[in-house]
Computed example of a mutant assay.
Amino acid sequence: MTAREQAHRDGVALIARRLVERDEQATDDRPDPEVWAAAVLTELAGFGWRPTAARTTTWQPRPGHQPADPQTARAYAAGIRARLRPSGHDNEES
């Protein structure tokens, strides 16, 4: 398991534990949701979690790549739909 995967598991475990603790409190004793969420984020930050900006990616075709013609694209889509169709519907037409 990579360090990133372990950090993800640890973060999930922390949030799950805090949710259970919160749910076990009497309704009148529960903190405001925003205050509770801020406390969880603060605790995560104490373990090294930091908010980061999402990075966008732009797909670029490889040099010399030609897009599929519409007929080929439709044939591929039909094949994918056939594979996604639930069992028992194999002989139905769309």
Rank of each mutant, 00 (worst) to 15 (best):
D29Y: 01
G88D: 03
Q25M: 09
A3F: 00
R17H: 11
R18N: 04
R85W: 12
R50N: 04
M1F: 15
E21M: 07
D10P: 01
E24M: 05
T58G: 06
T52I: 10
A54Y: 08
R18C: 02
T56N: 14
D28S: 11
A82H: 05
R22W: 02
A77D: 14
A37M: 10
T2A: 07
P61E: 03
G11M: 03
D10W: 10
E34M: 09
M1S: 12
H8R: 07
A77R: 12
L41Y: 15
T2D: 05
Q6H: 15
T57Q: 11
T27M: 09
P67K: 04
P33S: 05
P86G: 02
R83V: 14
H89S: 15
P31S: 11
Q60V: 14
P67C: 09
P70Q: 01
D23W: 10
E5L: 07
Q25T: 01
E34C: 04
L19I: 03
P86N: 01
G88H: 05
A68P: 03
G48D: 01
I80C: 02
T42H: 08
R50W: 00
E21T: 09
V40I: 06
P61Q: 04
A82N: 10
H89I: 10
D29K: 13
A82D: 11
D28M: 10
A39M: 03
E5Q: 15
H89N: 12
Q6W: 14
A77K: 11
S87R: 13
M1N: 09
T27Q: 03
D32L: 11
G79H: 08
A68L: 09
P63H: 10
T72F: 00
M1D: 08
Q71C: 02
Q66I: 14
T42Q: 09
G46A: 01
P33L: 02
R81V: 05
P86T: 03
D10H: 09
V40H: 00
A3Q: 06
R9L: 15
N91M: 14
D10N: 11
G64A: 11
T56P: 02
A3N: 08
D28I: 11
Y76F: 10
M1K: 06
M1C: 09
V12N: 06
A7T: 03
Q60I: 15
D10K: 08
A45N: 08
A13E: 08
G48Y: 00
A7E: 09
P61T: 05
T52S: 13
Q25Y: 00
R55W: 07
V35R: 08
V40A: 07
D69G: 13
G88N: 05
R55T: 14
L44A: 11
E5Y: 02
R55M: 11
A77V: 11
Q60H: 14
W59R: 00
D28H: 12
E43W: 01
P51E: 07
R4V: 11
G88M: 06
P67L: 09
R85T: 15
E24L: 06
A13P: 10
E21Y: 07
Q25C: 01
V40T: 03
V20N: 06
T58L: 06
T57Y: 13
I15Y: 00
V12Y: 05
W49M: 10
A77C: 13
R50K: 05
E24K: 04
H8Y: 12
A13G: 05
A53L: 12
A53Q: 08
G79A: 14
G48F: 00
T42L: 10
W59V: 01
D28Y: 09
W49D: 13
V20H: 04
E92N: 06
E24Q: 06
